[in-house]
């Protein structure tokens, strides 16, 4: 189990998130989502062990780990790979560093990435695909993916997700994704963490949400149930409640409702 204990993180004086704690089971596929600016990418950097938290600690639960980063594959939201290098040189460097034999990397072929082109000549989407291929080739125990896959065209994104699922089936890594398109990944994830400015609003398995998160349309707030979100949409007041009654929703709808209500609350 990966345990995050009382993490406070951010840049400069004001923390982005304060004192948050949660656990991730090894082999879980988690989506961290929530409105812009609440620190999802920051939290991912903390998980990647690239940004140290101001306070709090992470226990990855891997035995004999000097540097956890050797087991982590992180795809950041902005890609900082050596621009002047050629694709093949960087691939070789990466492979030498991780001791993993060169793979034909079918994703690269599909993305028409030339082995001899310079990194600086690749498009944003091609860079993201290249970076993902490198990460997956190193057998990470923890795969962290930020929103960057949105820059990849639908066909390649589909292929990237297929490759990710194959890796999941083969090696059962823990995967944490930030805010990917709900419809595309809703059947891949088994846990959702919804982050707001004031901390974690929701941390549940998708199974639990599909079973218990129900939509109730009513002017008054429903009583005696846990209300997760309320939003006014198309002239009706929608409440997302934890209940055995009400309309069952698919995951992407549940998350869209949560997202909408966080924005309406601000007003």
């Amino acid at each position: 189990m990966i345990k995050l204990n009382n993490i406070t993180c951010g840049y400069g004086k004001t923390p982005v998130q304060s004192d948050i704690s949660f656990d991730i089971n090894h082999g879980d596929v988690v989506m961290i989502t929530g409105p812009n600016g609440v620190g999802k990418s920051t939290l991912l950097k903390v998980l990647a062990n690239i940004l140290y938290p101001t306070s709090g600690s992470i226990d990855y639960g891997w035995p004999d780990t000097k540097d956890p980063r050797q087991f982590i594959g992180y795809l950041p939201d902005s890609l900082s790979i050596y621009k002047s290098m050629k694709v093949k040189d960087l691939a070789e460097l990466h492979w030498n560093a991780f001791g993993v034999k060169p793979d034909p990397l079918p994703l690269l072929k599909e993305a028409s990435i030339d082995w001899n082109s310079r990194i600086s000549d690749l498009s944003v989407g091609q860079k993201a695909i290249f970076h993902l291929s490198l990460i997956l080739s190193t057998n990470p125990k923890l795969i962290l993916i930020d929103e960057i896959l949105h820059t990849v065209d639908p066909h390649l994104r589909n292929l990237a997700l297929e490759t990710l699922v194959k890796t999941m089936a083969d090696r059962n890594p823990t995967v944490v994704m930030v805010n990917l398109n709900y419809n595309e990944v809703e059947h891949m994830v088994n846990r959702v963490i919804f982050l707001t400015r004031t901390g974690i609003l929701l941390n549940e398995t998708t199974e639990y949400l599909l079973e218990n998160a129900r939509l109730v349309i009513a002017d008054k707030t429903p009583e005696n149930v846990r209300v997760l979100a309320t939003r006014v949409h198309a002239g009706r007041t929608e409440h997302l409640v934890v209940s055995k009654e009400g309309e069952q929703l698919k995951l992407s709808h549940i998350l869209t409702l949560l997202m909408g209500s966080t924005y309406q609350k601000k007003k």
Partner: peptide, 15 residues
């Protein structure tokens, strides 16, 4: 295979 079906449908292999 689990791997094949999961990647085709983009579903968690555990499912």
């Amino acid at each position: 295979s689990i791997r094949q079906l999961a990647s085709q449908l983009k579903i968690n292999p555990n499912t």
